[in-house]
Write a protein that binds this DNA or RNA. Structure first.
Length: 482
RNA sequence: GGCCCCUUCGUCUAGUGGUUAGGACUCAGGACUUUCAUUCCUGCAACAGGGGUUCGAGCCCCCUAGGGGUCACCA
């Protein structure tokens, strides 16, 4: 019997989509697409305080940007909706009542103060795991009424079984959580709203999720959820707990580690394909050993048997390298499209399209992030440039530099257009005329034209600038010299 | 602290009892080039420690250490 493969990504709309969550989404997506299953997007918005519509929309936007699509979700509906938890409250209520009726759950009237006291007492006694003593497990009708009369509002607790709970995790293997390490936990708050460990089971169960793929920070929640499945009489899905992504300091990646939102990476000019490629290589590897992998290959090759059990540090340097590889592989027109918004935002006066593409081509093999094009191309759009570094100043101040410049200007005047080929010819003539060659010849010209001793191929730059602009910059450099 | 998970170069990883422990990023050096970058080549660099099992352990078992996670009327 082959069960339909259904996986889900279930973020809370409480902020920007985090890179760690995105990784979970990616693995779910890869698994779904690889196995011909379906990906369900579910919005876990039961935290009224922190949830927002903007966050929800941001999640859609970021997933779409990454290239992750889903088959069922709040925005597109589906057979097992609704897909927003706040729209499912009556469903949860029904199952709470059912569990209560069957005696798998019970009302607990303890106050927060009583709970604190209980916790302290347990701790003092050296009992640091289960502290709730189950005192309201078997209340009589009379006792209940007395509490209600006091105005106390009960929570609902699940009767956690007094037995080991074992399950097989697809990535971690066989796991056992010993009896006594978990107590009766709350499945519905005193205001009647259900808690996470309960709704996640109801939703996954009702939505017929076959594989729960999530971060291994959920590992210790799993026995609680299995207890709910059992109380309900439902079969639990398969679990695949993927290792966390860590920051440089080897703690779980979070806001503390800088820009960790998908949006942040988007804005910095990382390409979605590079990001997906890089993140799928965190705790997974291709059997081929290759690292630059297209989306198609990723989908084709992804398999949990090659997912490692240990956490991975997010290496921004390697991501940058990989992004550079993707940028270099882009057709020039596409790269130009992608750089355009950054250049516009910088306020640069942009030329015609073909010219712009030529300009972008100057830095194609030099970019790690799209946003870097702003800085690297500044000299092209600036009115004038000045030597940017001490080394650059030194080249301009070389004794031989003025005669190189003067010679260059004379030669430039002899030609109609200063293009790639003409420039090379002129430089040769300048060299012959002045006796200056090599770095002493090229560097001053480079600095005069671009302001720096490093940069794109000079003939290409000259080709873009044209004769008048080159002359102007050389002349300006001469003034600056004396 | 209890419980759970994890442990191969600085980082990401390959490896499933016999390998000079391989690749990638970073770094260093070299080639190409008028510079930088790209590209190519070379190099540095790892099996956490200790016990077993075995003719033989990175791979199997145990212990220790270290790291991470989780213990809410958050998700």
């Amino acid at each position: 019997m082959t069960q339909e493969i259904r996986v889900r990504f279930a973020p809370s709309p409480t902020g920007k989509l985090h890179i760690g969550n995105a990784r979970t989404a990616i693995l779910n997506w890869l698994f779904a697409r690889h196995s011909g299953g379906r990906l369900i997007l579910r919005i876990e918005d039961t935290d009224l305080e922190r949830s927002s519509k903007e966050s929800e929309e941001g999640i859609y936007r970021d997933l779409i940007w990454l290239g992750i699509d889903w088959d069922e979700g709040p925005d597109i509906g589906g057979e097992f909706g609704p897909y927003r938890q706040m729209e499912r409250t009556d469903i949860y209520g029904k199952y709470i009542d059912s569990l209560l009726g069957k005696g798998h759950a019970y009302h607990c009237f303890c106050t927060l103060e009583e709970l604190d006291e209980m916790r302290e007492k347990a701790q003092a006694a050296g009992k640091t795991d289960v502290w709730y003593d189950g005192r309201h497990r078997n209340l009589t009708a009379g006792e209940k009424e007395a509490f209600i009369a006091q105005g106390r509002k009960p929570v609902v607790r699940l009767k956690y079984p007094d037995e080991d709970i074992s399950f097989h995790d697809i990535v971690k293997g066989d796991l056992t959580f010993p009896a006594g390490s978990t107590g009766d936990f709350v499945i519905a708050r005193s205001d009647g709203t259900p808690t996470y460990n309960f709704v996640v089971v109801i939703d996954d169960g009702l939505m017929k999720i076959s594989h729960v793929i999530r971060g291994d920070d959920h590992l210790s929640n799993t026995p609680k959820q299995i207890a709910v499945y059992r109380a309900l009489g439902w079969q639990a899905p398969q679990f695949a707990h993927i290792p966390m992504i860590l920051g440089d300091d080897r703690t779980r990646l979070s806001k503390r580690h800088g820009a960790t939102s998908v949006q942040g990476y988007c804005e910095a000019g990382f390409l979605p394909a590079a990001l997906i490629n890089f993140m799928s290589l965190l705790s997974w590897s291709s059997p081929s050993g290759d690292e630059i992998l297209s989306l198609e290959r990723l989908v084709e090759e992804f398999d949990f048997s090659r997912v490692s059990k240990s956490p991975a540090v997010f290496d921004n340097e390697k991501l940058a390298w990989m992004n550079g590889m993707y940028i270099r592989a882009l057709p020039l027109s596409r790269l130009t499209d992608l750089c355009l918004p950054y250049l516009e935002k910088a306020g640069y006066p942009l030329p015609q399209r073909d010219k712009l593409e030529q300009i972008v081509s100057l830095v194609q093999d030099n970019l790690e992030r799209l946003k870097d094009c702003v800085e690297k191309l500044e000299f092209v759009f600036a009115d004038r440039v000045a030597p940017a570094t001490p080394d650059a100043v030194r080249m301009i101040e070389k004794e031989s530099t003025p005669k190189v410049f003067w010679s260059f200007l004379r030669q430039a005047d002899k030609v109609e257009h200063l293009d790639f080929a003409q420039f090379r010819k002129i430089m040769k003539t300048v060299s012959n005329e002045t006796g200056v060659m090599g770095k002493d010849l090229w560097m001053p010209v480079r600095v005069a034209l671009t302001g720096d001793i490093h940069g794109p191929d000079l003939p290409k730059v000259v080709d873009i600038f044209g004769k008048e602009r080159c002359k102007k910059r050389i002349e300006s450099a001469l003034h600056l010299e004396k």
